[in-house]
């Protein structure tokens, strides 16, 4: 690593999901804000251990769905009753029951798209590069190792303290990672 590279943070390796969960609780209690846990599979209870707040994604998707449904009804009203009025099977021009299926479908479509795009946005994706990739040991995060990285950008961050804390929590290996976030 080149010397002028900025410190990204401290990366600690754990051997089991249980150790990871325990360490997450302690890192949270130590008051760090900018840190994350990395695991090859979803670990039950990790959200609570990390102190994560419920995601706003559900509400975003709900607003997306309501928007989609409203636009769907509005579009059909405009097409059938305003722009090209045509009497079909003797029914009123604005026959709302006939417009429900498309209203429903557009609600689902907008809700799903909002959920998908909102997920990308909230996760900061797509993100082709992460400084943690420079750690050779980190490659095992997709296999059988569990990691916590505390970022140098955290207001509480002191290199020595963070290293000490993670070592004390049972990390099998602690290293400094450099690179631009």
């Amino acid at each position: 690593m080149a010397g002028e590279n900025k410190l990204y943070g401290v990366l600690a390796e754990f051997e089991s999901p249980k150790d990871l969960l325990h360490a997450c609780e302690k890192v949270r209690e130590a008051g760090y804000q900018k840190w994350d846990a990395y695991s090859p599979f979803p670990v039950h209870g990790i959200e609570a251990a990390m102190g994560q707040k419920p995601s706003p994604l559900g509400w975003m998707s709900f607003i997306g769905a309501i928007t989609g449904a409203s636009l769907g009804m509005l579009m059909q009203w405009w097409m059938s009753a305003v722009d090209y009025p045509l009497v079909i099977s003797g029914k009123p021009l604005f026959s709302w029951p006939a417009f429900i299926p498309i209203t429903f479908e557009l609600g689902v479509l907008f809700g799903a798209l909002t959920a998908f795009l909102g997920m990308l946005l909230l996760n900061g994706l797509p993100r082709p590069y992460n400084p943690l990739f420079s750690s050779e040991r980190f490659a095992r995060v997709t296999d059988d190792r569990f990691f916590i990285a505390i970022e140098a950008a955290d207001p509480k961050f002191r290199t020595a303290e963070a290293k000490d804390l993670l070592t004390k929590l049972g990390a099998t290996h602690v290293e400094l990672v450099e690179g631009q976030a």
Binding site: P42, H44, G45, E47, Q52, P54, S55, G58
Partner: peptide
């Protein structure tokens, strides 16, 4: 499995 059942965050 049932006794330990947990929902994911969502």
């Amino acid at each position: 499995e049932s006794l330990h059942f947990q929902n994911n965050w969502g």
